[in-house]
Design a protein around this nucleic acid. Structure first.
Lengths: 165, 165
DNA sequence: TGACAAGGCTAACAGTGTTAGCTACTCTGG
DNA sequence: CCAGAGTAGCTAACACTGTTAGCCTTGTCA
């Protein structure tokens, strides 16, 4: 495993276990037994580290959606499940503009494909559904719903609203 | 105008004009003609400054929704319009957990009321609609849709999906 | 007049990402 | 077999962040 890959793995552990503020260059370096400045022999900057986390995340996320049944309900379930299981990574993946030109070709499309397929290729509808799922998940991850809110019910309403009938 | 209010105004200008990374204690202090440490004579910390920005934002946002017609389409339009007009403030308002106990009583409910009313008080439905609108807006503000994406169409699909018929 | 609070200030601390510059090890070419 | 080059580590340092300590001046009020 290359040093860059080790750093990537360390960054991901720090992110997922302790949150984004723990993912500092010094702590990443510590985890792989070197000093922070030495990281720059293997990576141009921290943005590159985050970019690779995002790319890996998109890859895994796409795989999870592709593994789910080709129905709107199943896709929604898989979407939420993956997001909850990788809360901080999901947030990192979605909170900032995507530098598409620095991402592997077709990665984004591959993650979006399952949902688009379920909706018969209707892009506008796919964007509305994607955004709705993202909104529910993002607000849940940000702790924006009141304590006892029935989020299963909200997801059900969402899925029903977009279901073809 | 109190020093704290001056700081609040300066912080908001910096946030809205130059983005969150420009909203530093030193730049806020600069704008009102004092040094950063002196800010702490008027505010406990930066979190308090952000909290007040959020409170003001929620207040204004609620007013904008209340001023719009009591239809789903009009509420959606007002939601998006306010968010686009105050992009960075909206993001600040929604990206982190809401410290409800430090916010004016009823502020959150007052902002949520118009939408809830349009949906006849159905909380689950209101949460789904709110999240859908938030998702569309958040993704748009984060620059996550491709260049030529027809977002008006996506909003229309969303509004139609939740319309009572 | 003396006491006290309010509100400025500078200096400093710990933390962040990052750069400069030095050193040591390893590999390769003559 | 030795020279030179590249790789990858290191420390020191810079500019920035939020924040604290401690000092000093000003205004108010008994």
């Amino acid at each position: 495993m290359s040093r860059a890959d080790e750093a990537l793995r360390a960054a991901r552990e720090l992110l997922e276990q302790e949150g984004p503020e723990a993912m500092t260059m010094r702590r990443v370096a510590d985890r792989i037994g070197i000093r922070a400045p030495s990281l720059y022999k293997h990576l141009p900057d921290k943005a590159e580290l985050e970019l690779r986390l995002i790319a890996d995340g998109l890859e895994e996320f796409g795989r999870a959606l592709r593994a789910a049944d080709a129905t709107l309900a199943a896709q929604a379930r898989a979407y939420r499940a993956w997001g909850l299981a990788h809360a901080r990574l999901y947030t990192l993946m979605t909170e900032r503009p995507l530098p598409r030109d620095r991402l592997p070709e077709g990665l984004e499309a591959s993650a979006a494909a399952p949902l688009l397929a379920v909706l018969g290729g209707d892009q506008d509808r796919a964007r509305a559904v994607w955004a709705s799922a993202h909104g529910l998940l993002a607000l849940e991850l940000a702790g924006r719903f009141p304590e006892g809110a029935d989020l299963d019910a909200a997801w059900a309403v969402m899925a029903a609203a977009y279901a073809v009938d």
